[in-house]
């Protein structure tokens, strides 16, 4: 029995506004702040509000606000690629493992066990640090680290669908395995996969900026929120803006994506409850 009344979609509005602004920064930062990385050693560190610098400047005299706008793309693009990539691996391998079982399933679950035996941060730090790769190598490493949980998630949902009568009916009709997997099972797994992917974007954003906070992932001159935070440790007494702006941007972006993902997941769970 359905007992819920329709509520107003508060969550998409509340999360949509900040996410839309960030999206504009990512797409158009080269036009909005073309000179974000211009250094001005003469100015040096200034506190917020100084001469046209709303959030002040860092020790190289770069405007904190402009730098943060320019840093949006390195903060967001990598995580989106990570979430997409790992979910693609998750869907492909998870569907096969869940539906076919056998050695592939065993191998994948052992692989996941191994990776989950250590904290993601630690493995990411060790691998990217030792390999000495740049931004995209870090992205690749994080895809590999994120995929086991996605594989597990998809595998679990596929197994839950497989025992349902409609899949058994499809088997009895003699339909091919690929058709059952990708025409029958997959469309019913995609909604969960999508909300999981959103949550992964937030998690990847935090992980990526954590690595650049530790000095890995992004090159020295590239604008990046994690890097800005790392730099701000030496400026705390002179410019609080260098800390507060990138910190708030990371927190708000991650929280907005998480909130949206949670909301989608709840909505999906509610609609899939049998009447």
């Amino acid at each position: 029995m359905k007992l819920r009344t329709n509520r107003k979609p508060v969550v998409p509005i509340v999360t949509g506004i900040p996410l839309a602004i960030i999206a504009i920064f990512v797409i158009a930062s080269r036009w909005i702040v073309p000179n974000a990385t211009r250094q001005d050693i003469m100015t040096g560190v200034t506190s917020p509000g100084t001469a046209g610098h709303l959030f002040g400047t860092d020790q190289l005299g770069r405007d904190i606000g402009q730098l943060a706008i320019a840093g949006a793309s390195s903060a967001v693009v990598g995580p989106i690629v990570i979430a997409l990539g790992s979910m693609m691996i998750g869907i492909l391998l998870g569907t096969f493992a869940g539906y076919m079982g056998g050695w592939l399933d065993l191998l994948l679950s052992k692989y996941a066990d191994l990776l989950l035996a250590l904290p993601t941060t630690l493995v990411a730090l060790v691998v990217t640090g030792l390999v000495d790769g740049g931004y995209w190598v870090t992205v690749l490493v994080l895809i590999m680290l994120f995929s086991p949980t996605d594989i597990r998630m998809v595998r679990g949902s596929v197994i839950a669908q497989t025992s349902r009568p409609y899949i058994e009916s499809a088997k009895v009709l003699g339909l091919g395995r690929l058709r059952i997997m990708f025409r029958h099972i997959l469309p019913n797994v995609l909604p969960v996969a999508f909300s999981t992917m959103l949550l992964n974007v937030a998690f990847a954003l935090v992980s990526m900026s954590a690595l650049s906070f530790l000095g890995l992932g992004v090159g020295p001159g590239v604008p990046d929120w994690g890097r800005q935070l790392s730099d701000s440790r030496n400026l705390l007494d002179r410019n609080w803006g260098s800390l507060v702006l990138p910190a708030m941007l990371i927190i708000i972006t991650a929280a907005a994506i998480n909130l949206l993902g949670d909301w989608l997941q709840e909505r999906y769970e509610e609609s899939s409850v049998p009447r």
Binding site: A202, F203, V206, S209, A210, F213, L229, S232, R233, L236, D237, W240, L243, V244, P246, A247, I250, I251, A254, A255, I257, N258, L259, D262
Partner: peptide, 22 residues
């Protein structure tokens, strides 16, 4: 808790450090 789960440790740490330490 949604904010807390998503908030990066180092950002929270630096903010706390700034507010309570400095």
């Amino acid at each position: 808790s949604i904010v807390g789960v998503g908030a990066p440790t180092y950002a929270v740490g630096l903010l706390l450090l700034y507010v309570f330490g400095l």
